[in-house]
Design a protein around this nucleic acid. Structure first.
Lengths: 92, 92
DNA sequence: TAGATATTTAGACAAATTTCTAAATATCGC
DNA sequence: GCGATATTTAGAAATTTGTCTAAATATCTA
């Protein structure tokens, strides 16, 4: 269900930037927003799309909401690339 | 220049299907269109986007235009995934 | 050159996307 | 509970995207 959603999610450069930021460690929504020129509601919107695509997870800690990478779906996306690059006739 | 274009190009399921079809071998625009319910101009539009993203190449053979995969950009996209999945602190 | 086939280009239109501002919700510290 | 901080939700506006039909271009065959 989230395979196509994930491809759409990573199509946006701002969202890819968010994912790259999270690679280095978990961040709150506000910390993420600090890296962008957009307003916070816009960043929140992008985070929602990443969350719906299962590319990130969130957890509340007091006033803050921490976002973190969920790498499991990345594996699926990678598989699609592998499949395209694998020549016809080659065996897995 | 085509890194972001490529990510956008593969965000569409019809275009991913075209790429999957081409994996098995080169096809003409018409042969590709036969696999879809869309009208031919729509398929042509998708092919144009894939071409602009350097994901496919085309060559005319008489009346026909053959499309084929160009795998070089796929490598770049894959690299982005690798980079995300690689844990901080791990050495290449 | 004329008609047939293959494909793209042009232009229109609806749907989806991205961003904004304003308001709502949740939590903290006093 | 109140004010401050963090974040999301709601709704609007502008842009982009995906699709269609009609027309244009390119090539083949006779």
């Amino acid at each position: 269900m989230s395979f196509n959603e994930a491809f759409k999610a990573i199509a946006d450069p701002n969202r890819r930037k968010i994912l790259s930021l999270l690679k280095k460690g978990d961040l709150t929504a506000g910390e993420i927003a600090d890296h962008f020129d957009m307003q916070k509601p816009s960043v929140s919107h992008h985070l929602k799309i990443l969350k719906q695509a299962d590319l990130v997870e969130d957890r509340r800690v007091g006033q803050h909401i921490y976002y973190s990478l969920n790498t499991t779906v990345f594996q699926d996306l990678m598989s699609w690339f592998y499949d395209i690059l694998q020549k016809e006739g080659e065996k897995s």
